[in-house]
Design a protein around this nucleic acid. Sequence first.
DNA 1: TTAGGGTTAG
Length: 665
Amino acid sequence: METPVLGLELRCPHLFNTHSCCSSSFSLPAVSVRILTAAATTTTAYTVVESPATVAEEAPRSKRHSNSYLARKSAISEVQRSPDFLSSLQRLARVLKVQDLNVILRDFGISGRWQDLIQLFDWMQKHGKISVSTYSSCIKFVGAKNFSKALEIYQSIPDESTKINVYICNSILSCLVKNGKLDSCIKLFDQMKRDGLKPDVVTYNTLLAGFIKVKNGYPKAMELVGELPHNGIQMDSVMYGTVLAICASNGRCEEAENFIQQMKVEGHSLNIYHYSSLLNSYSWKGDYKKADDLMTEMKSIRLVPNKVMMTTLLKVYIKGGLFDRSRELLSELESAGYAENEMPYCMLMDGLSKAGKLDEAKSIFDDMKGKGVKSDGYANSIMISALCRSKRFEEAKQLSRDSETTYENCDLVMLNTMLCAYCRAGEMESVMRMMKKMDEQAISPDYNTFHILIKYFIKEKLHLLAYQTILDMHSKGHRLEEELCSSLIYHLGKNRAQLEAFSVYNMLRYSKRTICRELHEKILHILIQGNLLRDAYVVVKDNAKMISQPTLKKFGRAFMISGNINLVNDVLKVLHGSGHKIDQVQFEIAISRYISQPDKKELLLQLLQWMPGQGYVVDSSTRNLILKNSHLFGRLLIAEILSKHHIGSRTIIKSRSEPKFRGKR
DNA sequence: TTAGGGTTAG
């Protein structure tokens, strides 16, 4: 399945292969644990409602420490703490109510006990101790790691009315959005509506949140906002926050301003989220003037800018090219304790280097390193890219080497950056080392990796390797870029790898609606040169109108000389049909070939019969040739057909010489 | 009683 490249394998394991990685066990990589822990901390507000502590608070109101309450409370903590919770569960089954089990379930979710969570859920299902909250919580926690398992749980709900419960639906829709499955999410939402779901403000907000990071998400989000009145839903402060974020991430600052205005009219008060998004919408054009006004307004209502806000302001200043103020603001972030990681430094370095101020970027980089700021290696990546952009490949290569030793575990972007540096510096050995590293760490190459490698292989004149890599890239479903393909097609053609060139052409042609017209012409020359005339015919047939007359002529002649004789008439018809004027030489060659192969008699007769109707006649030398061989084809028939050519030629001469009389008759 | 919102480098 894998295509070997450079003797190594570019492993591309399953992008979404959730079956193999998580269906049986929930062993989590460190990153996921961090994400889940972070997610869990935000949910404590909801979970306290059912936590034992709350039970303790609520219980005294009705009955002070009733026996049953105390029994349930201790049963909950016993199950939570038990090394073999299932057996404790069995023992305490009679004491625990469904809501107690839900408390335990959420506790497992928060503390990352995935295996236990699933086992508990199965147990609850088996014993019929299950409620809407069980499904909702379970889907939320399971979905954070494994959306297909969450979907499975949702699909397994036996009761149709539970399946359209708004809490459960919100939970599963949210899990799809968080997993970047927006399309599936919208489809499921539509299905739920057909099944009878009455979406609420949370449902809509969940879907809208999916459009924040989506390219061109704005119009689609607005479509959804348009649905709100039909469902009797009014936008609340949270939804305004989401919509503003969508505006900001799509560079729609005017629309964001309008929404802010609408909020004010409706009497909503603005919070830090609303201001943050509006500020972010100004970062697109680096509109620092508006950003400064906004900061003033915000402070006037006693909202204190937080880390996010100040970082976003830094982004506005950088985009606006205000580098001195950016440096000042970075110092402010430092003293506020908001620059403890590399991110703001990275932003400034990147901005400076893209503005051609590489040395200033480098000084920020050195400064950051000197201060011992926590870094995951992104800052190094930015510097490497910046050095490459300025064609300082030796320095880029050196920094890549340093990065390799400093950061053992690199992510794909860092690996790509280093790979690019080594490729540009022409370090074949290091290129191979990077690929090996990717392979060992089971990091799948992405579009950029393939692109970098193919460009490099072309540069190093390893054209067949470049070809293999583009095949690999295509088979992994990556989009092919026309310019890269075109360059490879050219080089393959030049090196007499015409079939490979044609294969690249076809991959591009069938994965894109339109390709530039010169490419058809280019591949046609290559195919003609390789005498791959049948393939050339396919290209002409599909794209004749985009190919120049001289190239069509070249193709026609080549085909008449050595193309498949059975296709000669078809080729002539296609050429004529495209508006190309077939010259006498082509007819002469075709006819001589037919004469040399009398078993193709029918084809010759067909051609001769076709010609006069299209305004073609044989010239005198060809005519003589035919007459000389007419015994092979039937003298009478030939004489009859040629007489039509004779009339045809007179008509043609007449029409050429007397056009002015034609209209007057 | 369960669900929803902001910024970020390559």
